[in-house]
């Protein structure tokens, strides 16, 4: 599904991704772990199509198609979803307006008909209940006044509604207490499917107790420096990142 080859990206002349190679086959869940500042969020933004990065080398194939030049909104319509590490607060934009705009825009881009209002409402209600997203939250402007945990739940709600092919979750566990972590993980696990891939970025191993990955990659200083099974996460938890920080620098 996702095939990244020798990806180099810099911002303001500073190289942050320094040759990423990564294959995520359809239906698999891969985790990326790594110390702060290793470039995990940058990779997630570059995959989602954020502007401002110079892609100086390499390629990103999504379903076999090169997407390095594809704008963010088109990537979303193709099925790439990013759950933000820091979801934005957007005053003045109602959450429901936003959800409907996003769902219908993607449907339109794929040549599908727009949702009727009752159909839209029903879908939101069903998914929101599973994620403990209250009606009161849905009535507020997008993420405004939401706690850290509420924002993360709202990200997973969007993922559930948009049904992406590839979901990139950037530190979805950060700022969550144990109960919230369970709700979010259950929400994510419910979306695991043979035709959906996930890239779960995290700093800590604990999320991976809940969302068990097929493969774990270690990222350091802008490169994937090691890959292995779920046991690699436990090893990192025990030993920390000290080995990698030194080695990659």
């Amino acid at each position: 599904m996702l095939s990244i080859k020798n990806l180099h990206a810099s911002i303001d002349g500073r190289e942050i991704l320094r040759g990423i190679d990564l294959e995520v086959p359809t239906g698999q869940v891969h985790a990326i772990m790594g110390p702060n500042g290793s470039g995990k969020s940058t990779l997630s933004y570059v995959l989602a199509g954020r502007e401002g990065y110079d892609i100086t080398d390499g390629s990103i194939l999504f379903d076999g198609e090169e997407i390095v030049e594809t704008p963010a909104e088109e990537r979303a319509a193709k099925g790439i979803f990013l759950a933000f590490q820091y979801p934005l607060e957007i005053p003045g934009v109602a959450t429901m307006t936003f959800l409907k705009a996003a769902m219908n825009a993607q449907r339109k881009a794929r040549g599908e008909t727009e949702l009727t209002t009752p159909d839209f409402m029903r879908r939101v209600k069903t998914s929101a209940e599973k994620l403990n997203v209250t009606q009161e939250m849905l009535r507020r402007p997008l993420n405004v006044g939401f706690s850290g945990g509420e924002k993360k739940r709202n990200e997973i709600l969007q993922m559930a509604l948009l049904e992406p092919k590839l979901a990139i979750l950037d530190e979805t566990d950060s700022g969550l207490d144990i109960d919230a972590l369970r709700v979010v993980s259950d929400g994510v696990n419910a979306l695991r499917s043979p035709d959906r891939s996930m890239l779960v970025i995290t700093h800590y191993q604990r999320l991976l107790d809940h969302i068990v990955p097929d493969v774990v990659h270690v990222m350091a200083a802008g490169r994937i420096v090691r890959s292995g099974g779920p046991e690699l996460a436990l090893e990192l938890e025990a030993n920390g990142y000290a080995d990698y920080v030194g080695a990659a620098a």
Binding site: A48, E73, I90, F98
Partner: peptide, 15 residues
């Protein structure tokens, strides 16, 4: 705000 704009674009909403 570029961050807000990207958030909306990343959800597939056209520019």
């Amino acid at each position: 705000d570029e961050d807000m704009l990207f958030y909306l674009l990343a959800r597939g909403i056209p520019r």
